[in-house]
Every structure is written in C-alpha cells, then in structure tokens.
Design a binder for these strands. Sequence first.
DNA 1: ATGGCAAGCTAAGCTTGA
Length: 261
Amino acid sequence: MSKIFNDMKIISYNVNGIRAAMRKGIVDWLAQAAPDVVCLQEIKANPEQFDENVFKEIGYKYCYWYPAEKKGYSGVALLSKIKPNNVTYGTGIPYMDEEGRNIRADFDDVSVMSLYLPSGTSDHRLDFKLTYMDDFQEYINNLKKEFPNLVISGDYNICHQAIDIHDPVRLKRVSGFLPVERDWLSKFLESGFIDTFRLLNPEDVQYSWWSYRANSRARNKGWRLDYHMITKPLEEKIKRAVILSEAVHSDHCPVLLELAI
DNA sequence: ATGGCAAGCTAAGCTTGA
C-alpha cells in the first residue's frame, strides 16, 4: 500500500471527438475538476492532430493516446498526474485492438483501464459487439488474476437495468438495452465487479448519454452507458461515485469515482 | 412508428454513433 493515504479521483468521459471537446472548453473544465486520472473514449483523432501540451500544462504530465487505425474513429486515452508503473495498450487480440478501445495504467495499489465497448446500433455491428464483449470478458477474467485491484472505467454502451434508461419498454429492442446485452453486463458484474454509482445510489435516476436529436438532453431522455466498475477488493476504498451531468462538451457527460488509496 | 443531430472523413456527401 502507499505510504501516504490519499484520494484518487478518476474521471471517465466519452468526449465524442477530443478536438470538438477542446473547442467547447474541456481543458478548462478538467483543470477545475482536477481528477488525478482521466479516462477518455472516442477521441476520434491521432495525437499529432491536436496539441497534447495543453493537458500537460494543467497537470497531466503523463498522457497516453491509443487511436484506432481508422482515421477519425473511436480511440481511447488515459491522462494522469501520477506516473504509472506501466501502461498497456489494447488486449493483444488484433481485431479488438484495431479500433483503439482499451488502455490500462498500473499504479502502486490500483490499475485503471479506459474502455470503449463497441456500439451495436448498426445491424452489421451487433454481432461484432457481442463477440467483442465475450472476448473482453475472457480477457478480463485472466487480467483480474494478475491485477486484483482493477478499475474499468468507460463507455460500456449498455444500460444495465430499467432505471438506467428513460423508456425501458420502447427501447427494449434497441441495441444498448437488449436483453442479451443486459445479461452480459449482469454476468460481468457476477464475475467480480461492482457498479460503483449504483452501489452508492441505488435509487437515483441519472443518465450519462443523450441523443443530439429531438432536444433529448434538455428533456432528460437519456441512457446510463458510462460506468466505473471496480473489483471487489476495492469496495472498501470507495468514497464517492457521481455523474457529472453539468459538463456539456459531448453527447455523453463525465462520471467520477473517488477512491481512498 | 419514424426521424431527428453531431463529428469527422474528404472536399458535397458519406459513415458512424446509441
């Protein structure tokens, strides 16, 4: 364990294009929110397409970008004020890693992964998503043995329960809330993870994504797709798990986890 | 039931997202 007890604040944010989010002021917002670790998804850019120094200037000395092979598509990142002992890009499974969907930083007492699970809303992508989820579960089953203190933060592209979506009846045949996807998330949790927001806020109706269409955000017609999932040994370390819906740099909003580590 | 909006590709319209 660390010699000094401190809080680690982790923010996960699907930014829907980091350059667009930067134009909307995400850097100033991050400077003020001041998490220790930032997990980003859908950066939609290669690092040479923007100035990463603006993140270093607000304290994120350690920036790791993992873009997709396809330009302007998907991609995750992990920014940290604390120097990680090691950073791992992807799973090592080529078809998963082409799309830049996970990056992990190992610190002394905890490993943090930024995850972007695929969308299944296009017909031809649902099978891909389901295959990806199964292979990801198997990858994590093994990873958890090596790194028992694991935080997997990101956009899972699945609402778990009816409370997590504004219209559970109408949307039960739409990818993101399909029984097969919800069952996968249940099994993922049963395999040894905790949905930190739901543990601390069992009744709260809060979302982390709203369609740009039909004025959905103003009407709070949302979905809870973004999670900080932690392994059981970390449960006693949870201090706070909140959804930061005031941040408006994306169609998602950020989610915060604070651990006493 | 349907369509609606945005980002980023590349250079007017297409792909993807959920």
